[in-house]
Design a protein around this nucleic acid. Structure first.
Lengths: 122, 122
DNA sequence: TCTATATTCAACCTCATGGTTGAATTAGAA
DNA sequence: TTCTAATTCAACCATGAGGTTGAATATAGA
């Protein structure tokens, strides 16, 4: 039970580490899709697409409702929120870097305005 | 050149899809570490740890500075920001769900306060 | 210069992944 | 009932990932 969270993040990030699956998620963001609709944009077999969909389902990123012979898939955003919040821990690092960048630009700016305008009209 | 961004996300999410590497990043969040320092908490060979570190480096998540015979590693947050912002696109979906949850709880609450206090003193 | 330390390299093993194809399953439609 | 459509299953293949061990490389220190 202790490592359940960890392994969930494993499967989520693993699922996201494939462009095909990310595109499928993007598609699901626009609404429900059947398996064949999700497979259509890709030049892979239906069986391959079915495996990708199962990977998303295992990661908890997709829920399916079987309606007769078609499977209706929809986005399940929970694990995306988890991944997002995992990443948020590191937010201070990139914000810090943006701050440094901004400071440097400001200094450049100050230096420029102290100099006589050199070759720029307007 | 077109698919360069996509493949970068591939390697980033792939790198994050392994608990060992995530723990290494977490360690780097506390400061610079050498290769052996990063490897120390894990019961794997140094060569294996070296491969993990290379995976992080390939994903752009880690920069290394060779200082004599030791390699100083530090966190490179840029790709984390990219992954974070990729996920942010889906933010509305989980926020939506939280809103629904909140509404349901509020309704439950209202129902409760309309009822006579049933078995709760205070 | 010699030795010990930090790290990578190369070769190898095992298992998972992503793909294929053809058959099986299940449900709509005729 | 029979045909067709939607999907999965099973078997297979090639490749890559993560692990090992032992040798190679390069630098620090005596």
């Amino acid at each position: 039970m202790v490592e359940l969270e960890t392994s969930r993040l494993d499967t989520v990030f693993h699922a996201l580490g494939d462009a095909t699956r990310r595109k499928m998620l993007r598609e699901l963001a626009d609404g429900e899709r059947t398996v064949s609709q999700l497979a259509e944009p890709f030049s892979i077999s239906l069986a391959a697409a079915s495996k990708h969909i199962k990977a998303l389902e295992n990661a908890g990123l997709l829920r399916r409702e079987v309606r007769g012979r078609t499977h209706l898939c929809r986005l399940a955003p929970g694990p995306l929120a988890s991944a997002h919040s995992w990443l948020s821990f590191y937010e201070r690092f990139w914000i810090e870097r943006l701050d440094v960048l901004e400071r440097l630009l400001r200094e450049e700016d100050a230096k420029q305005s102290r100099k006589p305008n050199k070759g720029e009209d307007r």
